[in-house]
């Protein structure tokens, strides 16, 4: 590898790291909560770190420790946890056209969370092909380490932290919707797209408020897709207004 390509890779790595910083606002407070909840459920600090490192999927980790602590059968715990993560199957194929030929990509998909997908889906097409591996590695490693570090912090000092700085835990998670908004704003390019995106967003919000958080993402995206295709296939009425 030439010194030029090493320099390019390290700068791409740093760019990915920098662009993933907004994710920390959402990751760290939730990871601290996970560490705290898992400690209260009877898991040791190193078990919590192992769960966050190996599973690395927010909602399903909460479900896993909750069901395990509640004495649910392990096969059911595993099945329900995997069911929540099933939405991830559509993420990597969506990124595939912009991924290079490196053999590292399938392994790097361990870091493909909801938020990293949203960031990568917007940023990868705008990054030169030679820098994409470095960019993704930097972004994914920062997100992963913040999740693991936050879980450790929550396990060790979660109770103290939430009492000491309750405001921080309330305000910082807004970084996630703000980031999604900034990623999504350029996609409101036509009535068709605006309608589909708006419907997905409102449906997900409504489902979450109804307590159906675990199914809200795939269901809301399906609603948006229906709208997208319904607008395309809307039949024209001959002689009607505007015809």
């Amino acid at each position: 590898m030439s010194s030029e390509s090493i320099r390019h890779n390290s700068s791409a790595w740093l760019t990915g790291l920098r662009e993933a910083i907004p994710l920390l606002g959402g990751y760290v407070p939730v990871a601290i909560s996970f560490g705290l909840v898992a400690t209260q459920a009877g898991f040791s600090t190193w078990e919590i770190v192992a769960i966050s490192t190996l599973i690395y999927a927010g909602a399903s980790q909460f479900l896993f420790v909750g069901m395990a602590a509640g004495g649910a059968p392990l096969w059911l715990t595993v099945a329900m946890t995997l069911l929540i993560n099933i939405r991830h199957v559509v993420y990597a194929p969506n990124l595939a056209p912009w991924l290079t030929g490196s053999r590292w990509w399938p392994w790097l998909m361990h870091g493909l969370t909801d938020q990293v997908f949203a960031l990568a889906h917007t940023r990868l097409p705008r990054i030169p092909a030679a820098q994409r591996l470095g960019w993704f590695t930097g972004a994914a490693v920062l997100a992963w380490s913040s999740w693991v570090g936050g879980s450790l912090l929550g396990a060790v000092a979660g109770e103290w932290l939430t009492h000491r700085w309750p405001l921080l835990g309330e305000v910082m998670p807004f970084a996630l919707p703000a980031l999604f908004l900034a990623l999504l704003a350029p996609r409101f390019t036509s009535f068709r797209w605006s309608l589909a995106l708006g419907v997905s967003m409102v449906a997900a919000l409504a489902l979450t408020l109804s307590g159906l958080t675990s199914v809200s993402i795939p269901l809301a995206a399906a609603c948006g897709a229906l709208c997208f295709y319904a607008v395309r296939h809307r039949p024209r009425i001959a002689g009607g207004i505007g015809s």
Binding site: Y91, M201, A221
Partner: peptide
């Protein structure tokens, strides 16, 4: 080369993520 539905689903998943994250902690 991508199935068309997959290209549509990507941005819609991000919109759904936005919707989920917009639900405030204190309602």
């Amino acid at each position: 080369a991508m199935p068309p539905w997959l290209g549509v689903l990507g941005p819609l998943m991000i919109a759904a993520l936005l919707g989920v994250s917009l639900a405030p902690q204190r309602q």
